[in-house]
Design a protein around this nucleic acid. Sequence first.
DNA 1: CTGAAAGCGCTTACAG
DNA 2: CTGAAAGCGCTTACAG
Lengths: 328, 328
Amino acid sequence: MAMPTGRAATIIDVANLAGVSKSTASRVLTGTGRVSSAAVAVVTRAADELHYVANPAARALITMSGTRVVVGAVSPRATLSIDAYLSQVVSAAAAACGPERIGVGLQALSLAGPDPFAELGRDPTVQGVVLVNTTSSVLAAAGRALPGRIVSIGVGSAAVPSIDVDNGAGAETIVRHLLESGRRRIAMVTGPQWLPCIRRPVTAYQQLMRDAGLSTRIVAGDFTPESGRTAAAAALRRWPDLDAIVAICDDTALGVLAELRSRGVEVPGDVAVVGFDDIPFAEFAGLTTATHPVERIADTAARTLLQGRTDRAADVVFGSELVLRQSA
Amino acid sequence: MAMPTGRAATIIDVANLAGVSKSTASRVLTGTGRVSSAAVAVVTRAADELHYVANPAARALITMSGTRVVVGAVSPRATLSIDAYLSQVVSAAAAACGPERIGVGLQALSLAGPDPFAELGRDPTVQGVVLVNTTSSVLAAAGRALPGRIVSIGVGSAAVPSIDVDNGAGAETIVRHLLESGRRRIAMVTGPQWLPCIRRPVTAYQQLMRDAGLSTRIVAGDFTPESGRTAAAAALRRWPDLDAIVAICDDTALGVLAELRSRGVEVPGDVAVVGFDDIPFAEFAGLTTATHPVERIADTAARTLLQGRTDRAADVVFGSELVLRQSA
DNA sequence: CTGAAAGCGCTTACAG
DNA sequence: CTGAAAGCGCTTACAG
């Protein structure tokens, strides 16, 4: 018979319809313990008919598993500024957790106050934590407070698996492309110094330039378009013979592009410009860049937490691919 | 004394420390029923000391309230494309629900398959649903399946409160500004036709132009920069004497800007351009626009659901303010 | 392989 | 105003 609408089926409804005890129904549904194939058949059929899905609140209570995954954004200050990147991570995680009926939280992890991980570790509703923009010094505390319940989108550690894009290899591909197309006086605009994961592209750039017998030219940026504008101006002043600028992210590269355009510098004629991330706007702006699969990364991070397997084998590195457009 | 780390304080810990029964502790903590001020003092103190927060899973089980808020994105197709706007809504909701230890889900509400609201309505883990990009026809089913548990960021109905920006008034301010600065041949680039909430700016524009005795010039767009480019080209072809273009969103306005620039049309000299939303990139591009407080809207929507008060009085309209920059 | 029972942490009638 | 008891929906030892 049809179930009464307005009320979800419980395991007792399923057990009654199947003609077994709720213990047996539970065993079939969770797939644990020994059960006869007859029981499996009849319970499965009843559960299907009633559209039964276990109530996660009840399950969480008994198994001490969580009801939510928290995206923890490490930030130097107490206030949380939600940028496009962080939003994308949260949304992708929320989409991934939906079918399990697990929700996603977003929390600033302030380095200023008391250890933010202690509280998360004690919270039984927290199935796991996705660390974003972490620093090496944070990692130790995180791994200790949330053993087996934490992954990092960024640098990892022995206790915290890392799930991230291989931005070192991405930068390598970019610089190699510039060298192959004849560029020699290549500058790089970096990101915030405190973020360890962005050192990889810088290192890759330095290595490649050194190998080619060329000098490195580094200007500081902070991920914003404004910093790209400033950095481009500074670079041109310092190295008037510049023939390429690589920015560590597309936002900054768009700033570089705007500054060059306003100065009448031809792109890519005089100076080639390359970004990183392949944000939606990059295609429109004709910006050559390398991909950064943020959605897939966040999806994988969330699923890892859902499955509860966060040992070292959980490390995942996503490749970055060059996307050739007009700017280089 | 300090609580044992590794285990969250339960209401029994609080009751013991306070020297009362857990019934009394619960009454104090939930703020229901009669309690002596002495009990309030001692329980509050104990809860503070132990950093007690009720386990939402247990509470959900007994009160039949949910453990998560679901952002439901109405989409014509089955696949969910997560754009910047939707991401922002999800993230802001996640940040708002965090302190209550409620998670956020993200789900595509496909118009193609079976009624997606029936399942959400039956799901006891769903505290409420935030509807995004809804259509009038969806509203009826939503209100019926989730009475008192749904709000809409967009159009609302008698059963579904609307929490949104006043984009009609925003458009009015924009057009008025153009008229006051001497523009007369003003075109508007619209958004996707199926989205009812974007008809308000169109209507406002038509009204104001009619009142001023001017003809309206409307071109279709779809929120993308590419459509802005195409629309600008079409508009210039059709009305070569154009002196202003209003786009329904900043992304599209940036496309308009790019097309005008590539044709050597001076902005704002020949043609003024105005967007809507005030996305981060607008400031960088010098785009005049009107604000769209997405974070505050989503925050309010989530809080409304958390408080469980979704009667008609829950309607909230956020103002939109003109931001004057170089483009108009 | 199965069922009856205990218990997760909480709230809320029910007596006092 | 307070406490003892019941019960939300589930899982998991414990007997059989």
